[in-house]
């Protein structure tokens, strides 16, 4: 939690006003929209399209900055001529994301770190600069949520440009966190003032107690070789669902796709659980077994990333638990490691 620069209290109807104002500015507005029992970030044209009751979006907010597939280079080969190539048109569209959850916004810190340390990823950086994130406190959670286990909370304003604390009557307390949030708040000038008290919808209760991630790391530091990895990975089927939908996972592949004449070099999400991920053309594979790949995923989140960048790469959004077809449960894995470490 960070102290906001400024607080605004607005009455019901503020979202409509904001969305309309942004459309007037030709800004793209993304918000959670309900689709078949789940919510996804979609472009909306009116605030009414926005979900009112949702726990979290199926796809994390990372996809706005780091889409699952995108063109990097366009190329064309005309008969008798040299191949021509140019950067793909990736101009960042000015965007406001409404209704992002605190866990997802917390995860942007991990992505910011990776895409900017040393070399800067231009595509990510430009999208990041063009996007304003409006976070909203969670008022509901499900049994997979474990942000509290990772040191987060349902009403954490960290990572938001503007943070929304909803009130029962549709009004909200808005916390301006930075310059970008302030610019957005300005568009709300003249919004209906709140009526009555500033009573908030209570933030969601999230079950998971805080994990001692330092203890987890201590164990990981000394247990690269351990039967634990074989045991925990037997269940894992080696798909990419957990990583793809993880708000902090950022591995990618670069591939060329073309017909005979024209094509693109594209960047696609990739995943360290895949058997082929590290396999060399020679056939040598540094991580040949599922347990080595499962271990890498856990190590990366709770050891390597900390060693390297000083923070863990998990925010407790619970998506990996919700989507795992094999019933793998990260909370249980961490609990087991904690027990083993004690």
């Amino acid at each position: 939690m960070t102290d906001p620069r400024e607080k605004l209290v607005v009455g019901a109807g503020w979202q409509e006003k904001l969305v309309d104002a942004l459309h007037g500015d030709n800004v793209r507005v993304l918000a959670p929209v309900l689709t078949e029992g789940t919510a996804e970030f979609r472009e909306i044209s009116a605030a009414a399209e926005m979900a009112t009751e949702w726990i979290n979006t199926r796809t994390p907010v990372k996809a706005v900055l780091f889409p699952r597939t995108e063109a990097l280079v366009e190329f064309e080969r005309r008969p008798g001529e040299d191949v021509q190539f140019t950067a793909a048109d990736n101009e960042a569209v000015p965007t406001v994301v409404l209704g992002a959850r605190p866990c997802d916004l917390n995860a942007l810190d991990v992505l910011d770190t990776v895409f900017n340390w040393d070399y800067r990823d231009k595509l990510y950086a430009e999208r990041r600069a063009a996007t304003t994130f409006v976070g909203v406190a969670c008022t509901r959670s499900d049994e997979a949520c474990f942000c509290t286990g990772m040191g987060g909370r349902a009403d954490d304003n960290e990572g938001s440009d503007l943070f929304v604390r909803p009130m029962p009557d549709g009004g909200a307390v808005l916390e301006v966190m930075n310059e970008r949030g302030a610019a957005l708040a300005k568009r709300l000038d003249g919004a209906a003032p709140a009526v009555g008290t500033e009573e908030l919808v209570p933030p969601a209760q999230v079950g998971a107690g805080p994990f001692d991630t330092e203890k987890v790391k201590e164990w990981l530091d000394t247990h690269f070789d351990d039967d634990f990895w074989t045991d925990m990975s037997l269940k894992c089927l080696g798909c990419g669902a957990c990583s793809y939908l993880c708000p902090t996972c950022h591995c990618f592949d670069i591939v060329d796709e073309s017909d005979w004449r024209k094509g693109q070099r594209r960047r696609n999400w990739d995943c360290c659980s895949f058997a082929q991920f590290t396999k060399h053309a020679s056939g040598h594979n540094p991580r040949p077994e599922q347990h080595s790949r499962c271990r890498n995923r856990i190590m990366h989140k709770f050891k390597y990333f900390i060693d390297r960048f000083g923070r863990k790469a998990c925010v407790g959004c619970g998506r990996c638990i919700r989507v795992c077809g094999a019933g793998q449960d990260l909370v249980d894995i961490l609990a087991e490691i904690t027990t083993a470490a004690s």
């Binding site: 699952r68 089927l237 793809y244 696609n268 999400w269 094999a326």
Partner: peptide
């Protein structure tokens, strides 16, 4: 489809090594 290949990995008959 996000191409996570969960469908393939969970399928008892998708056993191709590559």
């Amino acid at each position: 489809c996000i191409r996570c290949y969960a469908c393939r990995q969970v399928c008892p008959l998708c056993y191709c090594k590559q």
